[in-house]
């Protein structure tokens, strides 16, 4: 291992050579042992790493994890909307038995079908109500004595 390689590995893996990858560890140790220049470089780098480890650090508050747990327990889960969960929720909420729910759905479907059928068979939109409502309103106004 040459000096350049040794320096690179030292920067990369640090001065604890027991933590160097196994395939380069032995070569590194031998290079260090045989070169005064590398020993000086190693010592210099060791001092540098020691300095890095003096870096300021503050422990988190003692109840830090507990605080997170307690805040999260107050959060409600915002489930994404789904029709299936809505129906399931309704069934649970009102205790509707499934056959009853099926019957209600069938009745509603029937009513919708009848509604559509009436709508399509009378496409111009005229209705009996429209024809009769106006005279009734006039009669009402006349009876009340309003001036139009």
């Amino acid at each position: 291992m040459n000096r350049k390689q040794f320096e690179e590995y030292l920067l990369l893996y640090g001065t604890n050579m027991n933590e160097w990858p196994q395939e380069i560890r032995q070569a590194g140790l031998e290079a260090l042992e045989s070169s005064a220049e590398l020993q000086a470089f190693y010592q210099d780098h060791d001092n540098f790493e020691k300095l890095l480890h003096t870096r300021r650090y503050e422990e988190p508050a003692g109840n830090f994890a507990q605080r997170i747990i307690s805040v999260s327990s107050q959060q409600t889960q915002k489930d994404p909307f789904s029709l299936r969960s809505l129906i399931a929720g309704l069934i649970d909420e009102f205790h509707i038995p499934r056959p009853a729910l099926a019957l209600i759905s069938l009745v509603m479907l029937l009513a919708l079908t009848i509604g559509f059928t009436i709508g399509f068979t009378n496409p111009n939109g005229s209705s009996v109500l429209n024809n009769t409502e106006e005279p009734q309103l006039q009669a009402f106004l006349f009876d009340e004595g309003d001036v139009i």
Binding site: I68, V71, S72, Q75, Q77, P80
Partner: peptide, 8 residues
């Protein structure tokens, strides 16, 4: 908290 809220 994001992990808990958006877990799904």
């Amino acid at each position: 908290i994001k992990l808990w809220e958006k877990r799904l």
